[in-house]
Every structure is written in C-alpha cells, then in structure tokens.
Design a binder for these strands. Structure first.
Lengths: 136, 136
DNA sequence: TTATTACCCTACTGATTTAATAGAGTAAGC
DNA sequence: GCTTACTCTATTAAATCAGTAGGGTAATAA
C-alpha cells in the first residue's frame, strides 16, 4: 500500500509542476490546495529538498520550487525517495538489495521468481513516466 | 512491501504444488522445509483452506493438499487472498475500491493516473503466472 | 474403544511503522 | 528590526505485523 507520505509528496510535486513559472510556492498554499496537513507536508517537502528534487527560499515570498524541469524528473527517482524500494521483497531490489535470511537459494525461490517480474513491470511504468506526465 | 504472511503462503503453496501426488502434507513438514514458524504457518494455511485453495485432512496421515491443479490457480487469486488488494491505492482497486477522502476529483488526480498504470502492469504479471509457473 | 495425530481456534504480546502534532529555532527580506 | 516562512527535534496515538502460547476438537489406525 502506498503511504500517505508518498501520496502527498506526489501531489505536491505535481502541483509545483503545474505552476506557470518556477517561483517559490508556500507550504501553506500547497497544503490547502491538496488537502494535506501542513505540518506533515513540511517534513515531506524537506526530504524532497534534501534529496535535490526541490529548492527552497526563506523569508517573505519564499517557499518551495522545482529545481529541474518536470519532464526531466523520472518517477523512478521520485518513488525511491518517497516510498523507498520499488521491489516488494529486498532480494529483488536493485537499489536496496538484501538477502533473505530464510531462503537458502534465490535462484530456485518461487517468491523471488514472481517478484522479479513484478519489479520489472513496475519499474517499466515508472521509467516511462516523468513528473510532466502526471500534470493533468 | 510483501508481508511475511504472503511470502510464506506462496512458499507453502509452491511446496505443495511440487509434490508428486495430491496426498496430504503435514504442516510440520512444510514448516521445516521452508524455514517457517510452524504456528504462524498454521494460521496462513487455515486462511488458504477457508478461501477454497487448500483442503485438509485430520488425524494420522493428515495434512494439507491442493484442491485444484497448480496450472488452474492464477496468481491473482493467490495474491488477493494472502496480500489483499493488488493496487497500491484503494481508488484504483478493482476488488477493494474505495474513494479517497482527500481527493476531490479522481479523473484529474496525478496519483490515481500513475497508480492505475502500476496496477495494470502488476495485474498482467499475476494473470500470466499460475502456481505451476512458480515450481522450479 | 482408545490412543494418537494433526488440524482448529482464541487470545495475547512486543516491535515496528505510520501519520500526524507541538513547539521552538533560524534565516531571509522588506 | 520585525515579519514571514522555512527548519528541526521530540513526542504520540493508532494500526499493523510477526510471532507465541495454549488449549480444543475431530479423524484415523490399532
């Protein structure tokens, strides 16, 4: 299940992408427009800034803004920052790989086999979508 | 992330599918072979039986067995029983649909748009795999 | 019929994660 | 120098997960 963090993060990013210019938008405006708890959104935008997706400006007229063009932001990046691994099990994760403790042999593991396919097809979707594609 | 319940359930089903006949297999045997807590596995097999995927036999020589042939058990069924909704958000779920409270318009929701694609591609994978395909 | 085997069910618990909430701090701009 | 608005830390209530414990019940073989 998608976490609220990811959901809100996606909505906020889409809202920023839909802006005409790249002038800063206040947290309060995003929160209000997307029906999100402002304080919760604050922490989400903060992580997006720390990972280089957003820039921020303090003081009057400040706010958050996209650093890159929406079409140059693939969903793979966004999803990994917000939600973490795209794979459903660590043993098929490209960026967050971990061996299963209980599984003696990955190659013959039925779960591994299935989840590999799921990861690939999901990854394909995220690769084929940029932030620009989400703007209505 | 895939729950242990689903993971163990899949492993148990695969193990049963790999048996030569359809004679009952004891819980203890499955648990031992797949490195699963026996008590936890009990509850998983119980739900699989209740939803009609497995049959059970009591007494000496008892255990669990597959009711249908592995090739006639699509992964969509198995995943929905074990993990629940395949979609990552309720508003794109076929079998567990729910409207988002915070979202005024589904059609223009960026999250909805993206997650619809993810659901479709994941569903495609599960449709194209039966339990028989998981057996090594 | 009796002993054994193995399924069936309920309740509980500790750990972890999620989704906030509260409140204080700090930097930028007018 | 005051306001605005981002930044950071800490706390928390609720939910879910993964597993544990223990007893109950039904079917089978001897």
């Amino acid at each position: 299940m998608l976490s609220k963090k990811t959901k809100y993060g996606l909505k906020a990013l889409t809202f920023l992408a839909a802006q005409k210019g790249r002038t800063p938008v206040q947290i309060s405006e995003i929160a209000k427009h997307e029906n999100i708890s402002q304080k919760f959104l604050e922490s989400i935008l903060l992580t997006l800034r720390k990972t280089g997706l957003l820039g921020s400006k303090k003081g009057k007229g400040g706010g958050y803004y996209l650093i890159k063009e929406p079409k140059d932001i693939p969903m793979t990046t966004v999803m990994r920052v917000l939600e973490g691994p795209i794979a459903m099990v660590p043993c098929v994760s490209l960026n967050f790989y971990e061996k299963c403790e209980d599984c003696p042999d990955e190659a013959s593991c039925s779960v591994h086999k299935l989840m590999l396919q799921v990861r690939d097809s999901t990854l394909e979707v995220f690769k084929n979508n940029t932030l620009a594609d989400l703007v209505p």
